[in-house]
Design a protein around this nucleic acid. Sequence first.
DNA 1: TTGTAAGCGTTATCAG
DNA 2: CTGATAACGCTTACAA
Lengths: 335, 335
Amino acid sequence: MATIQDVAKAAGVSPMTVSNVINDHPNVRPATRKKVLDAMARLDYRVNVAARNLRTGRTGTVGLAVPEVNSPYYGRLAAAIISAAQRHNLRVSIEQTGASRENELDALSLSRNRLYDGLILSTVGMGPADVELLKVDYPVVILGERIFGGPVDHVAMPNVDASQAATRHLIERGCRSIAILCGVVSEETDVTSLRLTGYRQALQSAGLPEDPGLLQSVETLTMHDGARRAREMVESGLDFDGVFCVTDTVAMGVLRGLADAGVRVPDQVKVIGFDNVQESAFLIPSLSTIDPDHDTMAQRAVDLLARRIRQNEPGADREEFVSPFTVVVRESTGG
Amino acid sequence: MATIQDVAKAAGVSPMTVSNVINDHPNVRPATRKKVLDAMARLDYRVNVAARNLRTGRTGTVGLAVPEVNSPYYGRLAAAIISAAQRHNLRVSIEQTGASRENELDALSLSRNRLYDGLILSTVGMGPADVELLKVDYPVVILGERIFGGPVDHVAMPNVDASQAATRHLIERGCRSIAILCGVVSEETDVTSLRLTGYRQALQSAGLPEDPGLLQSVETLTMHDGARRAREMVESGLDFDGVFCVTDTVAMGVLRGLADAGVRVPDQVKVIGFDNVQESAFLIPSLSTIDPDHDTMAQRAVDLLARRIRQNEPGADREEFVSPFTVVVRESTGG
DNA sequence: TTGTAAGCGTTATCAG
DNA sequence: CTGATAACGCTTACAA
């Protein structure tokens, strides 16, 4: 494998001149540049990225820590982030955290090894109690959930507002007994609690009572749990005419579970999800949902991170960006 | 940021001893080890991965080049590969190639920069004509498609056999006019051509004629194209009672398109896919499909790559692994 | 069991 | 515009 030294020797110049050519520095005479480029081609020269990293202290790679890449939602997010990073000449290395707090903290410490120039962290397991742990000396952007008042940039979902809008949409379509299908309810400001808040606000605004029996909490927000719970809800004789599912993934399960139980959507029960994953438009019935504009979120997250990397001052002027959203009306709510 | 030197000074030992502690080398007295560990903790020492990479010539990261991570199929594959790589203490950096030959070659050249210790490449754009370009001096595993006789390890889908089995299943369920929904037909040994071959073999074995009108080729194997084409097939009056879709993704679109056109599945038309993505079990109707055992494929691909990385001899004894498969019978074929 | 010396390949600095 | 020098932080080889 040829090094800069080899190229320099072959071109009859100094290593420094080769370096200048490689990095497009201005002060190189065209003739010299050509000599160097020729030698590089002849020797099939490739930069040694490790050496460059050591010298410059940059890696050109950012970490992306998400629960799992194999879900319609995080898959779409990851794809958008990889594309956005490409525009900044950054590569993306993915860590799957399995939504565990411990693995999320691991991802943070990987960056501390200077493996990544920065980290985009989708916090699911970590909560506000861990805010202190985010005080690190390299660029971090939190994506998706809102750790209120954290020390780093955030790109957040419009969780409360959009959930309120989703629930309101069900109300406007005539639903009066609206269930919410969410994850485990805790004190944390996680997906479930924030979207639950929006749901409650909508009920309240409409003067509808909140029936505890309509709060359906599942262990994991998967298709599997969604389908099972939907069947259970019907079989147990629960009276409901609408379901707000806190993610499209779990909503896909719900549609399936209702079908299993012989319930017609949207005639008997209307269903709305949250995320607008690609599949939603093709389901039978197609799924009404919230579109939080993933591409904008991804773009913004990468832009923020890239800015920090350039500026080299992690903490200053941290920014909160809440994605705009739209309600996408499809067949599952009679649209 | 503390270095090994700093730790050595603080612990009153040499840098080498610190390095030995870090790398769990055997010959360190427990007392010395403790001194060093204490110093490391006190200074919050982190290894500088770039320096280690430069010195060792290894990065601990492998590249994964796939068309896009945001598809049920490649998302699942990526997840499985990341998990498998973790077991070898390898990180995974994802390159999205958009199925273009050029980007696939780019991914190859990134590894030549020694950015990755090895590369798992899902060739879609590259064809047998590019076999020579795979003759590189670092570990590469081709995943998914079969570039016959390539110079590197392959983990291949059971394309022909499984497609034959899928088509045979439709025949066994009573279908006589079986359409195939595939991508652009070319001379390449790509998904479409291999699965088309299996489809034809099954028809032939069953003594069914091959009607050119039943060969439905779409530009991209997406839900969108699948849905549109299914509608067109019905509206044009095409006579068919079964569809073999070369991927589950396109099959999801087909199910939707048939519903749009008022065709009942499986009563009027039976549908089978290929991949067994997670969503398939939850669709309405649930989708019969081929399960090529992604986890085994991913595991095998990573194992092969890790072995090469350890052995440090790229070319020797290249291996071909064809995944086993099963036919998963669900509602879309009346199962 | 521990320490010394050297070098991996690159680029920042500054001198020519 | 080009080049000499040194340094980034680590580990391999060898010496003590």
